[in-house]
Amino acid sequence: MAVNTPAIETYLVNTPVREKPFPFAKLALITVAMLFMALFLLLPLIVVFSEALSAGLGEYLSALADPGVLSAIWMTVAIAAVAVPANVLFGIIASWCIARFKFTGREFLITLIDLPFSISPVVAGLLQVLLFGTTGLFGPWLSDHNIQIIFALPGMILATTFVTFPFVARELIPLAQEQGNDEEEAAVTLGASGLQIFWRVSLPKLRWGLLYGVLLCNARAMGEFGAVSVVSGKVFGYTDTLSLAVESLYDSYEIQAAFATASLLAMLALVTLVLKAALEWAHRDELHALKRKKAAT
């Protein structure tokens, strides 16, 4: 036994030190990953901007200043401004009750939250038409009261909210379950009221999950096409969102304007990424600590 021990130790110490076991494999894998990224992510991005600017900056700006495009920008922002907060609110409530309480229907609720992910957005849009359209379930009542939902902003908001429903909740539920209830109890013994616990403990400890959820939810809400296209009626300048406007313009052979509009959506994605990176950088100490803790457990 005593003779064997040093040999084992040598082996254990040396193994991690052995560098580059397969230099070729490593290089090949990195190259493939890089090429893939370039081909499927970088190239399209370059094409979008080069096409958008193909007729010069002046044309690019005037394409964006078109009343139809401006209206699409407004519609997109309006939809996201309602859908994202609604889903944030819902996500927080859902994660709170799923993580804290055991109740009948809890598993069912978790499954239900995933539903919008597994349904085609077009079906989701159609669903709204079947419910709120003129021949739909609530159609007669709505038209009696002069409320228009389908082919108008409310329908588009409803469809987008439905499609982006799981983003925040899906991010928060596992996080809240993992974090448990200990810190809330500690806050109780330290004299905090229910509201104080929520604002000072529960919400802040979920904030990174919440941030990712909001960014994803917002990106999807602004970029949503399928569901919105079914309920919007696609009247350029009235009920087009940015993604719908891209299609409208492209279909009417205004290629440069279509790409200029598309570049806005691409910029949205870039801004989202930069924002996320900046926030992570600003809170790097805290995040680093969280990661270390996770690695330790």
Binding site: D182, E183, E185, A186, V201, P204, K205
Partner: peptide
């Protein structure tokens, strides 16, 4: 608390 329950944030 047994696992301290410090506020992680």
């Amino acid at each position: 608390f047994q696992h301290y329950a410090l506020f992680r944030h």
